[in-house]
Design a protein around this nucleic acid. Structure first.
Lengths: 174, 174
DNA sequence: GACGATGTAAAATGAACGTTTTACATTGGT
DNA sequence: ACCAATGTAAAACGTTCATTTTACATCGTC
């Protein structure tokens, strides 16, 4: 496990549990078990570290979404919530905390959202045989809503989203 | 306009645009046009001010949701997004920034979420004549998802949620 | 066995944080 | 006219922030 891996892993957990601004550099160095000099030599700055954490999370999340149906997509989200907990979309949280004033963070967030949207669009087209923009938007909303609502309603929110997606999909014949 | 009104109004705008932690007390006093001494005499502390801002926002939001159908509920959300912009649910953002470590904030957030959920449950029962817990959960997810997705997809996310809700509702006969 | 790279430990930087305090101005009620 | 209340302005509080620097240890490699 490289220094960067330790740093990103520890930072992601701390950011997720306590927020980005509320997590100071001392917590990050302490969490990763490295000195602040090493942190800055590797990460450059706190904002750069945040962006890197988000990009790594995007990769890990995308790997989980390598499925072949909308239903499996929501099943994957259920697994994610069960394993990683439900504290809301870390990307949108980063955006909210920084007010969209940090370009490297904005870029990471938008790239992630575009990737998820494209994944959903591909699955919808694969299942319906059509390019149904409205249905894609509906699935995106359900996916985002399940992530957010799971914070305070738990896994049942994801289960409800999954069933809603199935219903909407069943109504869209090819 | 009382001092408290000025303070809460200015604070809500600043918190919403720049985040809670990133907004310092100097910005808040300057935004409200009052001294820090007056702010502390009225609000007590920053966390108490945040809780008050959330409670006031909950009231204002609830007033907007005084409608008689699920469709009108999403229409109201469309109006809200058009007027107030889409930077995500301020309640969940507050929860995320504080990591759930501030009881007064947690209370304000949960109270808000319970209130919205009850509103949705009442409307669903009014329209279907039944107590359909799954359908209620689905509408909650759509509502939450529209709020979150609107950040990066704009009003079309709310429109999609609205139509999805109509479809799901049509499938639930009384 | 010396060397450059790479790490740690710890102190220093200067600014910003939330909060309190001191000193003073304004004002409305009796 | 006066007093208590309520406001402002501004400095001071001690802490914490992100970042840099200084000094020193450890290492694999030639």
């Amino acid at each position: 496990m490289t220094i960067m891996d330790k740093l990103v892993t520890a930072s992601e957990a701390l950011f997720d549990r306590h927020g980005f601004t509320a997590t100071g550099m001392d917590k990050l160095t302490q969490g990763a078990g490295i000195s602040s000099r090493t942190l800055y030599k590797h990460a450059g700055s706190k904002n750069a570290l945040i962006a890197r954490v988000l990009n790594e999370r995007d990769k890990r999340f995308a790997r989980r979404l390598e499925v072949e149906s909308i239903d499996a997509l929501f099943k994957a989200l259920e697994d994610w919530v069960r394993v990683e907990g439900a504290r809301g979309c870390l990307f949108l949280r980063a955006l909210g905390e920084t007010g969209g004033d940090t370009p490297e963070i904005v870029d990471a967030v938008l790239a992630h959202k575009v990737r998820v949207a494209e994944r959903i669009a591909a699955l919808v087209e694969h299942e319906t045989g059509r390019d149904d923009a409205m249905l894609v938007e509906q699935i995106i909303v359900l996916f985002e809503g399940a992530t957010a609502a799971a914070i305070y309603r738990g896994e049942q929110a994801v289960a409800a989203a999954r069933q809603a997606a199935a219903t909407l999909l069943a109504g869209a014949h090819s």
